[in-house]
Amino acid sequence: MNMVEQKYQLIPGVELRKGSNVMIYGPTFSGKAMFAKSTFRKLINSNYGGIYVLTRETAEQLIEWLGNDYNPNKVKIIDCVTKSMTGEAKDTASIKRVTVMDLTGISAKISKFFEEFWRSGVKDVILVFDSLSTLLMYLNIQTVFRFLHILTGRVKMTGAIAFYIVEEGMHDEKTIVTLKQLFNGMIEFKEENGKKYVRFVSSLVKTEWFEIVVDENSVVIA
């Protein structure tokens, strides 16, 4: 069974199998996005291909954050922000821009990137979707569920690892329960007394809460 290498695991005792779809859930500013970004960076530096779907920042902002770790051959970006704001934004081979409601465009472009990685011999891929909460601002849960049903199936089929960020407090309980059905597990964040914590929850595993330190570049266990 293929696992993410131990040194890239943030949460002790949690092994993510290839083909896993994982929800990242927690309140605003709890470290979710930084966790996703830093995991993405670690894996692309470990010969993974990376696909990042952005709904809250532009491709250029992600590229700036990645700095020298950005390599267009290994990092593919679907930018759902720029086109929604300006209407006119040119695509490149590694950056595709769509509007956030255009689920067909997002789906087809993710699929195309998977194909490109496959044909270039890159079999290990990490996908980050930041965030499902933005989709749910515009589209109902049934529509988002149908979209995710296809996407999570493709991730499973390709043996990729995918993280989907969901904001705690923005959606009702029914929505969260519906979304959870699609995922293998959940990386959950919380903030208490000025400290941040993370744990992993699935139908088989529930870790303890680990205190974390979040800065501009990483999330580490305290």
Binding site: L103, T104, G105, A108, K109, I110, S111, F147, I150, R154
Partner: peptide, 9 residues
């Protein structure tokens, strides 16, 4: 009638 993973627009 378009496959959801295909750019069919």
């Amino acid at each position: 009638w378009i496959d959801p993973e295909v750019e069919g627009n």
